[in-house]
Design a protein around this nucleic acid. Sequence first.
DNA 1: TAGATTGTTAATCGATTAACAATC
DNA 2: TAGATTGTTAATCGATTAACAATC
Lengths: 213, 213
Amino acid sequence: MYECNQQTVTIQALQRMPYYVQQLRIMQENMVQTVSAPRIAELLNLNEVQVRKDFAAVYTTKGKPKTGFLVAELLHNMEELLGYYNINEAVIIGSGYLAQAIISDERLKGLGLRIVAAFDFSLDETEKEIHGIKVLSLDKISNLCRRMNIHIGIIADSGFQAQVVCDQLVAGGIISIWNFTEAHLSVPEYVKVKDENFTASYAVLTNHLKKNL
Amino acid sequence: MYECNQQTVTIQALQRMPYYVQQLRIMQENMVQTVSAPRIAELLNLNEVQVRKDFAAVYTTKGKPKTGFLVAELLHNMEELLGYYNINEAVIIGSGYLAQAIISDERLKGLGLRIVAAFDFSLDETEKEIHGIKVLSLDKISNLCRRMNIHIGIIADSGFQAQVVCDQLVAGGIISIWNFTEAHLSVPEYVKVKDENFTASYAVLTNHLKKNL
DNA sequence: TAGATTGTTAATCGATTAACAATC
DNA sequence: TAGATTGTTAATCGATTAACAATC
């Protein structure tokens, strides 16, 4: 029941975009003006038709046979599509290594991610700070998100009841959740959960080992 | 050209397994002996036929109509398939927050991951340690992997030339690579790369925001 | 028995890839 | 011109889902 889904770009295409952006930036730095689909396909081990279709989803000028596509235009349109020109505020749950890795990730900062608060068990009464971000008590999630109009929540610690935290985020108006726990989260259909399940990824690594050793 | 691919379980199914394991463990703790596909499907928002097929890929006893499947057996077979009873040694590239998050991740430890060495630029001559793991100079990757017979490599820092590091890992006999950088890695076909590209994931979150705000 | 649940075959669905005419 | 490259339509492919008879 996917009503009113106007997305022209599939989620798969969307996740290929950052790879294109990376290559296009290199080309722009090297003063390369145009690029062909087969060339990009070769660099990223993709099918050239797929690259052409992905490009078609963002370009304003059609590609020229024998020449290719305009690097600058593709790059700009992709960065826009990916929201790199916008600032997105988020809250993070957790204050451990993983949370700190995300908070201090320069790539994500460069993409516009601004983490405005962290949440954790309040072990002592003194509110601590990490990387200049206040670490608040978990029970303040909903209120803060609502008050500050935040729409992205990052669950970066498996030490909590993920579903409970998730429910609070949703109650606070969060609609995009980045879930680093191994829990499956149940959410209303208007909320998007992007799972980053390390245990599932690890399964892929070990399965390959088992088959090839 | 997928020759000699004896894998009965698809990569998608494989990544669903940890979610099943989690539910089955809860059931086992609650002394639940059997479970039906529709029940698991309900808990994890999956299709019941899919669950049945995933179970069929691991079970030794067929399910009984009206009763379901044996929790203990499913759990044991899945844990075995996922390699949870094996220890897997790995090296990690990086010694920052992300590397430390992975090194100190109790879930991964519980699954058998043993990180035996970290690599980083050797800024000072004193070899440092993080979480009891020696941080070595990058140029020692190949030798150490080869000598210690390591087959998993984790690239947990975007500050390096990912492809160069990757080539060294492959040269050292690594066949499973967990790539947390945003770079696309080119590897021989016998090497499996599992990408954990935060910038691509972030694109999914912001895209959902753009469409729903 | 009735009905919940199974296993399996067939249908659907969506993404990727191939084919090919158009064009610079 | 010849040929590399484009855009698009059709074919393929693989995973998910539906349908349904079998069974406890």
